[in-house]
């Protein structure tokens, strides 16, 4: 026993050292590797495979034939695809602009001293917690033509029944209201968090110089929030352009988006192409076009929002 004692730690000593070296050099890579592995499996591979499929006439339990860019040229000359693109952009503009402005206003209001501040701040986030589908189901009832609550209210003011699904603008309005109901609070909380990091002395100095609260808001708060505004615009762009659940539920769970595709978004067009048309090639090509569209719109938004400047 006594002779063995010194030799025992000798073996693990070098092993431990090796392990220690691995911990120092390899550990960071090992720790971030799950993200990259998962991204490769669930992000990169599908992206590449989708591109491959989009260059084929590809049917499940059917032919897989190379067709080059045929699917893309079909889409670019397809009336229904352009209609879906227009709807997507239309609903995006109609929902995002009021949503972000409203969120700014709410955040600025919540940034003031008030009673029950915590309860109100939590309350504004509540719609986020509800499921998209539940929201869409409830709103779809509210926007019913014959038995809906909104038409009943309009009726009290002597306005005729609006068929919310029959035309583009009413249906876009209805869908935008669902999106805004859910996401305005989320953006407001993000803005609020950012507002609280703005140094107080900026406002104090402005107040001493005689700037009105309104002027302080536009010339201090908004410019200081710029990085956060860019972030929310990016997130809203991605969410808005891949819009699917709300318009689908609004149209009784169908992918057609109304009788003439009044509110069919590109995401719905993609799902319709492979679920109902069994045309995976076309769906894949449309998905790639949507991807490019998001990049372009995000870039435009970035350039636009980047122009926000305050006088310093």
């Amino acid at each position: 026993m006594t002779t063995a004692a010194p030799s025992v730690p000798a073996v693990p000593k070098s092993a431990r050292r090796r392990l220690l070296r691995f911990e120092q050099r390899g550990m960071p890579y090992a720790l971030i590797s799950p993200y990259f592995l998962l991204f490769a499996v669930f992000g990169l591979f599908p992206l590449g495979f989708t591109l491959w499929v989009s260059l084929h006439r590809w049917r499940l339990a059917g032919e897989k034939q190379w067709v080059g860019f045929d699917n893309y040229s079909f889409l670019l000359t397809n009336e229904r695809f352009w209609n879906a693109t227009g709807n997507t952009l239309g609903i995006f503009v109609m929902s995002t602009i009021p949503q972000l402005l409203l969120a700014l206003a709410i955040a600025s209001a919540l940034n003031k001293r008030m009673r029950f501040r915590l309860a109100i701040r939590l309350g504004i986030l509540l719609p986020m917690v509800t499921s998209v589908v539940a929201v869409a189901v409830v709103f779809s009832h509210l926007y019913g033509t014959e038995f809906g609550l909104f038409n009943w209210v309009l009726d009290l003011f002597g306005v005729d029944n609006v068929n919310w699904r029959a035309d583009k603008l009413p249906s876009w309005f209805a869908i935008s209201s669902m999106i805004d109901w859910r996401w305005t609070g989320y953006n407001a909380i993000i803005f609020l968090a950012a507002m609280q990091t703005i140094p107080r002395d900026l406002y104090e100095a402005a107040a001493i110089d005689g700037a009105s609260p309104r002027r302080q808001f536009w010339q201090i708060t908004v410019p200081q929030l710029r990085p956060i505004i860019i972030f929310t615009v990016f997130v809203s762009t991605m969410g808005g352009l891949t819009l699917f659940a709300e318009p689908t539920m609004f149209g009784s769970g169908l992918y057609g988006g109304g009788t003439a595709g009044q509110f069919q978004t590109v995401a719905m067009y993609i799902v319709q192409a492979f679920r109902q048309r069994n045309n995976y090639g076309l769906a894949a090509a449309a998905a790639w076009l949507l991807f490019l569209m998001i990049l372009i719109v995000a870039l435009i938004n970035y350039l636009f929002v980047n122009r926000i400047r305050g006088s310093r």
Partner: peptide
């Protein structure tokens, strides 16, 4: 859907 569209006035 087209039939419904005619009924709805689209």
């Amino acid at each position: 859907e087209v039939i419904l569209g005619i009924i709805e006035g689209t």
